[in-house]
Every structure is written in C-alpha cells, then in structure tokens.
C-alpha cells in the first residue's frame, strides 16, 4: 500500500517547525513505526536527516511513543499505543498527518520528540509511598481485598506516555496525576501519605503549566491503557479533603 505522509519537522526547540510531505510504502502487517523506519532508512541513505521520534519497547508498555496521528494521539485504534498500531488500520492511498504531542508543558525537542520530564517532577513531588529499602514488613502481613488490589492495578497500568495531555483541549494532566493518586490511595500502604500526596502532586502539576480539567473526557478516550476518568473524581475528593483538613506540620527538636 502507498501512503502520503505529512510529518512535523522541527530542527530544535528554538526553530519553528512545519509539516513536510513524504511518500511511504507499507504492508498491512507492518507496525506504524516500522513504516516510519522504512521512510527513515530511505532518508539516511540519501544523506538526509531521518524523522526523529521517541520509541523503545515497541510492545505498548514503556510509554515512549508520542505521536498524534490524523489528529488522534496514538492514532485511530482504541486502547493501542502507536507502536502497536498496524498498517492494516489504514487504506491504500490514505494521507496521514503525524505531529508531536502539543502542550507547553511538553516542549518539543526535535521533530516528533518532546520533553516529558514534567511528569517525572510530578511523581517526585509525592507520587510514591515512602518505604526505604529494608524497612518492609512481611508481604502478607497486611491482607488487601482483592477488589482493592485490582482497582489499584487498573490505575497503576498508566504508562506515562502523555496521550491524555495531548488529547485534552486544556492540556490537562489530571488523568495521569489522578491515576497515581488512585493507585496508591487504594492500598493500605498508601494511606499515611494519601492527603499530603494529593496536595503536593496537584501543586506540582499546576506549577508545570498543565491546564485544568473541564470534563471533556478526551483523555480517557485517548488513553492506550484505558485509565478511567473516575480516577479524576477520586483525586478531586482527596484534594478537597486534604485542602480543608490541612494543618501546619508539627515539628519539635528532640530533647536528647
């Protein structure tokens, strides 16, 4: 099959970018990234710079892929990352527009590659359970209801790709942030820090310049792992409760 590609090319963060046309030949069994590999090899042997894009595991779990394909993050197939999208989802003769994630909190570094370190900083601000190595009790000491463990798992399936941000008209990161808050908040181990976690993660999210949620639900539709917007409701509840019950920290020096 033959396709016409319109790909976002941008040399670096400072230089303006534009859409550039390419012709691609593909087979239905190829993955979308394999189709781009072929285009890139063609460019390389001509001495032209290949299209830069993030990818790594190519099995839908590392979260590196970050392409908007024909206006949809990760392309036309539901619950599928770009690397797991196959060319059989396209028709011969199609025009395919490929752009990077667009959000000021994800500045473009080159072509389709953007900087998502804002997500890491949000996790660093509180997206964890403080359990220093060596301090853990026996794993079966605290039974966890299966349904709680399963729901925590559903939220923890997030791969941190950022499609939710790319899909949201406000470039909100609330699906990502809330998935972590739900994951840890559903587990007994996550309770001691539950409310401080909600406060600090939301604060960091705002500081990074992500927008607010206005209930469009585009994030859930774009999420390759099917993370539910229910998590946002959970986050809002935790955040609200934390905000009204917040008290200054009590700290006093030891008396020897």
């Amino acid at each position: 099959m033959k396709l016409k590609l319109k790909v976002w090319r941008q040399p670096d963060a400072q230089t303006p970018g534009r859409l550039v046309d390419y012709l691609a030949e593909a087979k239905p069994d190829m993955s979308f990234l394999e189709m781009l590999d072929v285009v890139n090899e063609g460019l390389i042997v001509k001495g032209d710079e290949p299209i830069a894009f993030d990818h790594d595991c190519r099995e839908g779990i590392c979260g590196s892929c970050s392409m908007v394909i024909n206006g949809r993050p990760h392309g036309p197939r539901d619950r599928t990352t770009t690397c797991q999208l196959h060319m059989r989802s396209f028709e011969d003769g199609d025009t395919v527009v490929i752009e990077p994630w667009r959000s000021s909190a994800f500045p473009i570094q080159k072509d389709l590659v953007c900087n998502r370190s804002s997500f890491d900083r949000i996790i660093a601000s509180g997206g964890f359970i403080s359990a220093p190595t060596g301090s853990a009790p026996d794993a079966n000491a605290i039974p966890i209801r299966k349904s709680d463990a399963d729901r925590a798992f559903d939220a923890s399936a997030c791969i941190g790709c950022g499609a939710c941000v790319a899909a949201c008209p406000n470039a909100s990161a609330m699906l990502f942030v809330s998935a972590k808050i739900s994951h840890l908040g559903k587990l007994p181990q996550g309770q001691p820090e539950r409310y401080t976690r909600a406060l600090s993660m939301v604060e960091q999210m705002d500081a990074e310049g992500f927008g607010s949620c206005t209930n469009h639900g585009e994030c859930e539709a774009a999420c390759p792992k099917g993370i539910s917007v229910e998590n946002i409701a959970q986050m809002n509840r935790d955040f609200l409760k934390a905000s009204v019950s917040k008290r200054p920290e009590v700290a006093a020096g030891g008396a020897g």
């Binding site: 964890f128 359970i129 359990a131 190595t133 853990a136 794993a139 463990a149 923890s156 181990q189």
Partner: peptide, 10 residues
Amino acid sequence: DQCVAQGVPF
C-alpha cells in the same frame, strides 16, 4: 516484602 510496601499491586 519491599515491593508490596512500595505499593506494587501484586
């Protein structure tokens, strides 16, 4: 033990 304490949903 360590992973469960960190919140790994086994």
